[in-house]
Design a protein around this nucleic acid. Structure first.
Lengths: 138, 138
DNA sequence: CTCCTTGCAAACTATTTGCACGGAG
DNA sequence: CTCCGTGCAAATAGTTTGCAAGGAG
């Protein structure tokens, strides 16, 4: 019994082929390419011969997000990308030249954010930090 | 001769009614409401009796962005908001309860960002930091 | 069996573009 | 005058939804 099935059940979702396939795909993602658009997922499924509709991909990803299995990012306008929720929070560095996405976590920044928000009488619910970079030339 | 006209010329744009009106609107924005979607701008113009097409609003805002007069943000998926570029860089706190947007600038975070990117062999081109909050209940 | 899911197509939302006319310089 | 800029409608891109058929428990 694959672990995906249990994760799905735990999330209150029936174990169906599209859900299992999509979850597998996200879990098997290379370290350097863990961020997928709905199209990416759709294309990958097509290529491995799975006959899943794009609408289903969107539905499944949205359900996964609601269940906390997946996190949705909006690095750029016009489309979302999804990545498997690995429990740990992290922010992103997006390379404008190569499109590469690097994850990072920095306690100094995290702490400072909480402080700034507190000072202004708010409670920090979530945050999004994206650093857009280019390879250092020299 | 209004200052808007000069700003437009400096940006290499002809002085036309839609451009002047939109620029005025952005400049006259209240301190607590400086972030407009294209729809917001369009609606405001309609209400003041100006007959400008939504397509033109998009075109003008995009030109303003290219000219550096305006900055575009994607706080949430599905639509952009624009604010007048005031020269200074700042980040945003978005209240999930009231929709309010507060600007802030923190040197500790700014410095740290540059550091993190350098360490990884990149050059920081731009960044986007949005803190999503709720009013502190007590 | 009974719902939850799915595929497909149509619907939607935000934004962009083609085109002929109108206005700025 | 000569183009650039504009309004309108049609086109696009990403995402969502209605519906009837299919599948999980």
């Amino acid at each position: 019994m694959s672990s995906e099935n249990q994760e799905l059940r735990k999330a209150g979702l029936k174990v169906t082929l599209p859900r299992v396939k999509i979850l597998q795909l996200l879990e098997q993602a290379e370290d350097d390419n863990q961020h997928f658009s709905a199209e990416d997922v759709y294309r990958a499924l097509m290529e491995s011969g799975e006959d899943v509709g794009l609408a289903t991909v969107y539905r499944v990803l949205t359900q996964f997000e609601a269940a906390g299995l997946v996190v949705r990012h909006n690095f750029e306008a016009g489309h979302s990308v999804f990545e498997l929720a690995k429990g740990d929070h992290h922010d992103h560095i997006v390379c404008l030249t190569t499109g590469e996405v690097v994850e990072f976590f920095d306690e100094v920044i995290e702490t400072r954010q909480r402080q700034l928000v507190e000072e202004r009488g708010y409670e920090l619910i979530d945050h999004s930090l994206v650093l857009y970079v280019r390879p250092k030339k020299d």
